[in-house]
Design a protein around this nucleic acid. Structure first.
Lengths: 243, 243
DNA sequence: CGGACCATTGACCATAGTCAACCGCCGTGG
DNA sequence: CCACGGCGGTTGACTATGGTCAATGGTCCG
């Protein structure tokens, strides 16, 4: 089992049980590694796809492109995520997928996935569960952008990112690389650049966390969680990280 | 094949191909019919479920409950939808599900679904696709509530509802029953009651559509679509309705 | 007829968007 | 090595949008 298969197995094990046979099945999956530069699109809105990407390194984002050119970022993806599992059974992309900074992905043909799903339905169910968790994250984003104050929205966003990263072992001490600019944060959280900036200042004042130069630092997890009304149960992660 | 099985088959056929054997498989699914009153919860946030509901009549909604008691409605479901297919592989509800008015559902045990999925993977894939379309609807809701004006938001919401209903043959001429109050519309579209009211007036002025007393009337589909920047491709419906 | 509930409207106010200027860092090229 | 330019972040002034609150109206039902 190479690193790529291991990455997928680790991710699925965050919420699903896999037998030895399931893992053997996963080992047979073929893929192609692809490097991405900052801001590079992996797939564009309207494209048709025959492969899904497994994130190996860096951060990817889904986004909608509006008629007026504005972007709406929808979700962010870290090592182990399979962002376009969403597109397994859907021909035409209704959103784009881009790298926030340098990133690396394993491109897995849909035919490979389908072969494994037929051979070992459990793997299919685990990936299905993965897509359902994605759905839960989308739902939470609706609520976040619709029903929380700017400060709470920002705090919740950082909570989710940090929690997911921590569950996957991607944090260093109390910090996490978040290669997102303020402008993009605004296009994620439905705020203008100026408002993002002011909300960040407010956040800094609470001493709960800080975001500066692409690095998120969490000083007081409980306080941050409180600010963002963050309840991680929607992430359905079985192996919960410690704080 | 009774009406319930037929309802499910029709829905899946909107986007997936089913063989005669698949349909025979679906016929074997056991279920229990349940009636719901206005505003009655089918499932509450935090509940654990062992069954999924297929909507037979009326309209159901998913919603988040905030710590301050406010609701955020996430999506609406019409005849043929299986709203909590989302919860097939997830134990604990991260949102609630309620009836907007009198409604009827078929409650299908997860064990029944899993049995059929194992016997005929194609059926599983069709239901999976159904959940992925749900995801696309969530994504669009993020964008709608985050990046469109109040008028556009309202128009887009009505477009989606009308389009989906029309694809399922649930519209009467150019009208559709939408048993949602203005308050609830606000809790769906991230607007206050007053703003919803004003946006509705604006909408009326355009002569594109009207919403009054729980009935949506579309006078000028093209204009409404335009107002809401509505592009139905994210719904991934193969058999497109005519306007 | 009275009350409940929902919709409507107006006045006022708070929040956040827009715009523009400025800063600071970094990389490039003279 | 320093000057320059560009990008991204910071800040302030003004403005617009939409939230809040309160009063009014309409309709349905008891």
């Amino acid at each position: 089992m190479d690193n790529v298969h291991q990455t997928l197995v680790n991710k699925l094990k965050e919420h699903s049980k896999l037998t030895a046979d399931d893992m053997t099945g996963i080992e047979t999956i073929n893929y192609a590694v692809r490097h991405l530069g900052p801001n590079e699109d992996l797939i564009r809105q309207g494209d048709t796809t025959k492969a899904s990407a497994l994130v190996l390194h860096g951060m990817l984002a889904r986004y909608h492109l509006m008629p007026n050119g504005r972007r709406q970022y929808l979700s962010y993806h870290l090592k182990g995520d399979v962002p376009d599992a969403q597109m397994l059974f859907i021909e035409k992309m209704d959103h784009g997928l881009c790298a926030m900074d340098h990133a690396m992905v394993a491109s897995i043909p849909h035919s490979e996935l389908m072969r494994v799903f037929h051979a070992r339905p459990t793997i299919g169910f685990a990936v299905w569960r993965e897509t359902l968790i994605d759905s839960a994250i989308f739902r939470e984003a609706i609520t976040n952008n619709s029903a929380r104050s700017t400060l709470a929205r920002l705090a919740h966003f950082f909570c989710e990112l940090f929690y997911r990263a921590k569950a996957s072992g991607l944090t260093r001490r109390n910090t996490l690389d978040v290669p997102i600019g303020l402008n993009q944060l605004g296009e994620t959280l439905a705020m203008s650049l100026a408002t993002v900036n002011r909300a960040l200042l407010n956040l800094r004042e609470t001493n709960a966390a800080n975001f500066k130069g692409g690095e998120l630092t969490v000083f007081d997890w409980a306080a941050l969680q409180d600010l963002g009304e963050f309840d991680p149960s929607y992430l359905h992660i079985v192996r919960k990280p410690r704080f």
